[in-house]
């Protein structure tokens, strides 16, 4: 890939390893994932790693936000709250950053880029939770007033 920062290429090269490690430790990432089959877990992890890679390459926040909204919405149907979904995404990024540090001990930019992506992810989810909190709070007076 021409002109792409080295950490982007490094992340892409690490992706298969990160995916394998995630599947291996999935029970410790989130107890709910332990119940998924390896294939189901792989599908979810792959989607998250793809979203991280897209963010690193394109820097496109709108796309990333769209992915996160879908991720959180789908997790909510599994009974997983947005904060749990957030911690899961951060745990995935942590695993990726740990592997990056181990594979590139002399180049801190890879792990740093992943940490920044994790912080942006956590921030976007907080924005989403705050937005929903504002909406639901606005619905309270009408809901309470609907009672006799």
């Amino acid at each position: 890939m021409s002109g792409v920062p080295s950490y982007v290429a490094a992340f892409e090269q690490l992706r298969p390893q990160i995916l394998a490690r995630l599947i291996e430790v999935r029970g410790s990432l989130d107890h709910a994932i332990a119940r998924l089959s390896a294939d189901e877990a792989r599908g979810m992890f792959d989607a998250v790693l793809h979203a991280l890679a897209t963010l690193l390459v394109t820097g496109d926040h709108t796309l990333h936000r769209g992915f996160l909204h879908s991720f959180v919405a789908v997790r909510s149907t599994e009974g997983v709250g947005p904060d749990h979904a957030q911690r899961l995404l951060v745990a995935i990024a942590d695993t990726a950053a740990t592997l990056a540090r181990a594979q590139h001990p002399n180049d801190p930019t890879v792990a740093l880029a992943i940490n920044h992506a994790a912080r942006l992810t956590a921030r976007m989810i907080n924005d989403g939770i705050a937005e929903e909190l504002e909406r639901r709070t606005a619905q309270l007076p009408a809901a309470a007033g609907g009672r006799r």
Partner: peptide, 22 residues
């Protein structure tokens, strides 16, 4: 950088708890 991620998730927990209460 990692500590600030923790800060965001700590705040996320508080926001989500408020959302659950509402």
């Amino acid at each position: 950088a990692r500590a600030l991620v923790t800060a965001e998730t700590a705040v996320g927990g508080v926001l989500a708890q408020r959302l659950r209460t509402v």
